[in-house]
Structure formats: structure tokens, C-alpha cells
Design a protein around this nucleic acid. Structure first.
Lengths: 162, 162
DNA sequence: TATTGTTATACTCTATAACTATA
DNA sequence: TATAGTTATAGAGTATAACAATA
């Protein structure tokens, strides 16, 4: 049966990895390809980097956040957030304000321009997502949701343990 | 039913993308995580870049290749291949030789040291792949194989058309 | 002392294009 | 002219660490 490699398949290929069947490679190629279809929107058309797009989406979904919360929400590290925030502030898409309750925190909010930009990108991004996922049956989409959760959990475990 | 977003799910969330449910984002996070588990091997332990690892794997699987064939096999562009090849040659993991039949081609081959390095990495990489995929049932692995092929085809279509 | 955020540095990756040599 | 490969350059991503301000 054709499937993502199992131990049995592997033993048959005696010590050589066929990249085309190596799961981490296949996944990387797929993710890069999907990422590029969305990047054509926010990058080519609206001149945002991937990090800037993620921060924009985080603030659109959460109204206002401290930088550290953006980092948690986007899986970016605090340094990447800091850079993206600085760029978005320069472009006047967000404002930065000290939290009076704890002045270490900078409260981030989209400006009307930032929100407008986001509203332009969202339907386009959704259309791309929909078009890609329409390649799958409903059952496959349901299966994929479960599969991705399982794989992510396992991969995180593995990396943390080294 | 919980599944990767459908049109219906989307309409309910009125104009805001929850990154955690946005498929391109989820896929990117998963692929990065999986990639890192393998990178811990070839990068941390054996001091190869991702490109170098791919070229090494390409030459291990195909014995000898011209640089342009490595590019096709690895989905790297010719510039990335050229850089990775130069680095691997410096480390004495491969040799470069002119093709007498067409002297524009450089025939690439692993040295015994290159092959030995590869043989050290393969079982470790396979063990990581296996451990990750063991999170899935056999049926899920079969489904994933089909799903990834469909998604890759669709994403490539979409990107080419803009 | 610990946390939030900024800045510095270095390396890797991605993308385009100019260039050399061969065909 | 076209192809294989190299070199140049710049922007973007990733990672570690030092640092300032605040708690």
C-alpha cells in the first residue's frame, strides 16, 4: 500500500534515503509551496514580510496585545516580533503604547490603516486556502486536522528531548 | 466536525483569521518543527546546512549526478546547489569532475568520507522520521500520503497561475 | 533577581541577475 | 543563442547573547 514511509518500507531501501519519500523533506517542500502562494499576496502585493503579516493577523484577531503575547500567538521569538513591530509602526499600521499597569509592556494596536490593510488581505488569503483545501474530500480534511495535531505534538516532544 | 477549515467555518469567523486555524500557518509551523528535529542531527551534530544535507542525500541516492540534476532532485535552485557543492568539496565529502561528453557539466560524486558521513546520519534521521510517524495509525499514514500529493499539486498550480 | 523589550552579530535561506565557459 | 555552472548582492529568516528599563 502506498503511504508515508513505514519501518518496513525503510528496511527494504537498505541505508539510502530517497528524499522524495522522506517525510520531513516532503513536508518541507509542501509547506514552502503553500507558503509561497500566500506570500504572493502579503509580500508581492502589499509589501509585508511573513513576520509582519503574522503580527498583523495576531493583532487583528486579538485587538490589543503586549509584544510577548504576540510572540506566543505567532510562534515568533521576541526578537522577530520586535523587528516586525518596528517595521509596522514605521508604516503606520500599528501603535505602541506603554502599559500603565506594568511599564515594561508595550501595548500594540492596529491603526485604522492597519485594519484596512488586513481586511484587504484576508479574503484573498482565505480564497487561496480554500482553493488548496478544495483538493481534498471532506473526510480527508477531517483526517488532516487530526493528523497535523498528532504530528505537531510528537515533533515538539522529540525536539525538546533532543 | 473538527477539521481543517472549510468555507462554512470561515464565514462564521467574519473577516478575521485565527492563525491557529489558518491552514498555511499551521502547515508552516508543523514543517518547521519537524525540520528542526532532523536539523538537530545534520546541523548540530555534523555541521551541515540543510542544503548540504540535501545534496549529500541526493548523491547518496544517485551515485553520480550533474549539478543541474541535483537541483531537480532536491528542489534547490542552481545557485544553492553551487554553494552547497563548494562547501561539501571543501570538507572533502564530494569530488567535482568535468564531464568529457559535455564539459559544461560537472559530475559530482561522494568521497568515501562523504558516504561514511551519510551512513552515520541516515539511521538517526530515519529513527526521527519513524518516531514522528508512529504518532499516526497505519490508515492515517496512508491517507496522509494521498493528501500531501493532492495538496502539493494544487499549491503548485495555484502559485504558477499567480 | 527576573521579565519585557531592544539592539548587535552572525549565519542561513531566498531571489534576481550578471558573468564565464561551453555547446 | 542556449545551457551549465559560478559569483555578486540584497533582503529575509533564525539563533544567541548582551543590554536597558522596570518589576
Amino acid at each position: 500500500m502506498a503511504q508515508v514511509q513505514t519501518a518496513t518500507d525503510r528496511e527494504a531501501s537498505d541505508g539510502v534515503i530517497d528524499l522524495q519519500r522522506f517525510f520531513p523533506y516532503r513536508l518541507a517542500v509542501l509547506a514552502e509551496e503553500v507558503s509561497r502562494t500566500v506570500a504572493q499576496l502579503y509580500s508581492d502585493r502589499f509589501d509585508l514580510t511573513r513576520h509582519e503579516w503574522r503580527v498583523l493577523a495576531a493583532l487583528a484577531a486579538n485587538r490589543q496585545m503586549a509584544a510577548k503575547d504576540v510572540a506566543g500567538y505567532t510562534t515568533l521569538d521576541k526578537m522577530s516580533v520586535s523587528r516586525a513591530v518596528a517595521a509596522l509602526e514605521t508604516k503606520a499600521y500599528l501603535t505602541r503604547e506603554e502599559d500603565p499597569a506594568d511599564r515594561r509592556n508595550k501595548i500594540l494596536r492596529l491603526t485604522p490603516a492597519g485594519r484596512a490593510l488586513y481586511q484587504k488581505i484576508v479574503p484573498l488569503a482565505r480564497a487561496r486556502e480554500r482553493h488548496i483545501l478544495d483538493a481534498l474530500t471532506s473526510a480527508e480534511r477531517a483526517a488532516l486536522d487530526v493528523i497535523m495535531k498528532k504530528l505537531l505534538g510528537r515533533a515538539r516532544d522529540l525536539r525538546e528531548r533532543g
